[in-house]
Amino acid sequence: MISQLGLSGMLVSFADRLDEAANRAAIAFRARVEDERIPGIEESATSLASVFLRFDPMSMDHHRLRASLEALLAERDWLAAPLPHGRRLWRIPVCFEGAHGPQLAQAAELAGLEPDQAIAELTAARTRVLTIGFAPGQPYLGILPPHWNIPRQTELTRSVPEGALTVAVRQFVLFAVTSPTGWRQVGRTAFRCFRADADPPFRLRPGDEVRFEAIGAAAFERILAHDGDGTGGAVAEAIE
């Protein structure tokens, strides 16, 4: 479905809910649109299940862009598109203990689990970067098992720290900045998603996979103290 999003934007949606195939479709369709180099398109991005196009409102309009996008949509079954090349598997240490996981027990209860079971499940999941957004380099990771479809809070948590691992609606968000949020913080990493002075400044890409590995509070403090480049003890390997 194609909709206008603001005066200079269009949104191509492949699903109105979280869906693995729709996420693959969005990543692949964005690559196709970039490849087409439609005059007047200035920027593109993906979200969980859609592609956003920002255009120059002086030279392009919603109506004409819709026609171009419909032609590209008709080229293939985008829901059957493969994942992009060059993906990596990241293993990121996370501490679930004490103040590092202030809402672990609450989130576990909403998922119908004991805290220990919750940690076991959250570290067993091999999740994928579904999209990057909200804050610089910040990943949405999923898709967690159905019983992790826990709602966001009605009231916002005033602040979670950079590196906070939060959970809601069958996904993790690993916070790139200190931020208010409606997601529940279950753990904390020392992984920095964005550093303006690094090359590249953004670490994760849509399609990358992530596994979290539980560490104790003492190990977490050691990583924080010796972590010059913000890797947070994470390691990455190429997939395939």
Partner: peptide, 29 residues
């Protein structure tokens, strides 16, 4: 489902009140 947001969007927050997004907003909400 979390979706792209841009400056000018009028979000209805959890308490049912509108929040107009400004240029330094997040990119997904």
């Amino acid at each position: 489902v979390s979706e792209i947001i841009t400056a000018g969007d009028v979000q209805i927050a959890g308490d049912g009140s509108p929040f107009v997004l400004m240029p330094e907003c997040q990119t997904i909400g």
